[in-house]
Nucleic acid binder design. Structure first.
Length: 341
DNA sequence: ACAATTTGACCTGT
DNA sequence: ACAGGTCAAATTGT
C-alpha cells in the first residue's frame, strides 16, 4: 500500500513534469515545420498528462493488489488463482519489420522465460506463455502471452498480466545475460524472432496497460514473439525525441501514453518508424476475453481519458517502469503499425 | 554443468 | 466437458 501511495506521488509529479516538457515540445513544434499530427499528438499528450495527474488526485477505489508473496508449494492454486484474477491485463499488438527481426529482437526491458505453449482453439498459431525471469529470485509475477495473428502472421498479439515488481526492466544498457541469451537463442533457432527480449516494452506498456495495442510483426517461423515492444511513438516525431528524458529519469514516452503511447526513439532514425497502434479494436474482437477485459480495452480505446481512468484506477502500475528510460537498440527497429495512420 | 526451452500432463474456470 | 493456463520433467543449447 505504501508503495502504491509513493508510487502515485511519483507518478503525479511525473505527469506534471511531463506535461511541462510536452508543452515545451509543443512550443518548439509551433516554431518549426513539424507536421500537424505531431502537434496534435503533443496536445493530446499534454492533456492526458494533466488528466492523469487529476485522476491521481481524485479519491479512488481499491487498487489492484500487488503480486503476492510466494509461498511454498508451486501449486498453491488458491492464491495463484486469486492473484491471477487481480492482475491487471492489457494487450498489445506489435509488428516488427523483417529486418528487425533478423537483426534481433527488441526488448521491452524485461527478461522473460517461456514456460509454456498451447494450441488455441480456432487459432492457427499456438500461444506462448512467458513469465518474468526473476519470478523466483525477485518474486516478480509479471507474465505475458504472445500469439501470432491469424490474419496477419507478421503481427503478434501480446497480452501482459501483472506488473513487474522486479527492478529489472528497461535496461538501457546491455542487459544482463538473460536477455541477450534469449535473443541469441531465438535467432539461432529460427532466424528470427524477436522474442521476448529483454528490452521489450513492457515498461512502457505498463504505462498504458490500459489496453494499448501495438503490432509487432515477426518473421519468425515460430511464433516467438516479440513480446512486448515499446510501442509507440508519435507519428511524426522523429528526431525530436532526443530531448526527452534527458536525464534518463523519466521516460516521457511512457507517459504520453495511455493513449498513444509514444515512445521515443532513442535517437535512431529507424525508430521513427515506430508508431503506436492504439487500440486495435479488430484485435479485441478477435480474442477471447472476459467482459471486463473487453470493457477495459474499449474504454481505453475510446478515449484517452477513459484510458487513463482505467490505467490509473484499476491498475497498479509498476513503480519501476515509469522512471526507467527505455532505450531501444538501434538494431531493433521495428515498425509499428499505427491504426489511425 | 548450468540455463533456457519444449512439451505433455495437470489444474482451474466456464 | 472443454479450453486456457501452468507446472515440471525432458530436451536442447551455451
Amino acid at each position: 500500500m505504501e508503495n502504491i501511495c509513493n508510487w502515485e506521488q511519483g507518478t503525479l509529479v511525473s505527469e506534471l513534469i511531463q506535461g511541462l516538457e510536452l508543452a515545451k515540445q509543443l512550443r518548439l513544434h509551433l516554431g518549426a515545420s513539424s507536421c500537424v499530427e505531431s502537434r496534435d499528438l503533443l496536445v493530446q499528450k499534454i492533456l492526458s498528462s494533466y488528466e492523469k495527474a487529476l485522476l491521481i488526485l481524485k479519491p479512488r477505489g481499491p487498487v489492484a493488489e500487488s503480486p503476492l508473496t510466494i509461498n511454498g508449494s508451486p501449486r498453491d492454486i488458491g492464491d495463484v488463482s486469486k492473484k491471477r484474477k487481480m492482475m491487471p491485463r492489457w494487450r498489445d499488438q506489435v509488428k516488427v519489420s523483417s529486418e528487425n527481426l533478423l537483426e534481433g529482437p527488441h526488448d521491452d526491458g524485461y527478461s522473460w522465460r517461456k514456460y509454456g505453449q498451447k494450441d488455441i482453439l480456432g487459432a492457427k498459431y499456438p500461444r506462448s506463455y512467458y513469465r518474468c525471469a526473476y519470478r523466483n529470485t525477485q518474486n516478480c509475477w509479471a507474465t505475458k502471452q504472445v500469439q501470432r495473428s491469424d490474419e496477419d502472421p507478421t503481427i503478434f498479439h501480446v497480452t501482459y498480466r501483472g506488473t513487474h515488481t522486479c527492478g529489472n526492466g528497461n535496461q538501457t544498457v546491455p542487459p544482463p545475460a538473460s536477455p541477450e541469451k534469449q535473443e541469441r537463442k531465438s535467432n539461432k533457432n529460427h532466424l528470427t524472432n524477436n522474442n521476448h527480449g529483454p528490452l521489450q516494452s513492457q515498461g512502457i506498456l505498463l504505462d498504458f496497460r490500459a489496453g494499448l495495442s501495438v503490432n509487432t510483426g515477426g518473421l519468425d517461423n515460430k511464433e516467438m514473439a516479440p513480446s512486448s515492444f515499446p510501442s509507440t511513438s508519435f507519428g511524426c516525431l522523429k528526431n525530436e525525441n532526443h530531448s526527452f528524458s534527458p536525464s534518463g529519469v523519466l521516460d516521457y514516452s511512457n507517459i504520453f501514453g495511455s493513449f498513444s503511447s509514444p515512445f521515443m526513439s532513442p535517437g535512431t532514425p529507424e525508430l521513427s518508424h515506430f508508431s503506436v497502434s492504439q487500440m486495435n479494436f479488430g484485435d479485441i474482437h478477435n480474442t477471447k476475453h472476459s467482459d471486463s477485459d473487453l470493457a477495459e480495452l474499449i474504454s481505453a480505446t475510446n478515449s484517452p481519458i477513459m484510458d487513463l481512468d482505467f490505467s490509473l484506477d484499476q491498475v497498479e502500475l509498476d513503480p519501476n517502469f515509469l522512471f526507467d528510460t527505455t532505450e531501444f537498440s538501434p538494431n531493433s527497429l521495428f515498425a509499428i503499425k499505427e491504426e489511425y495512420w
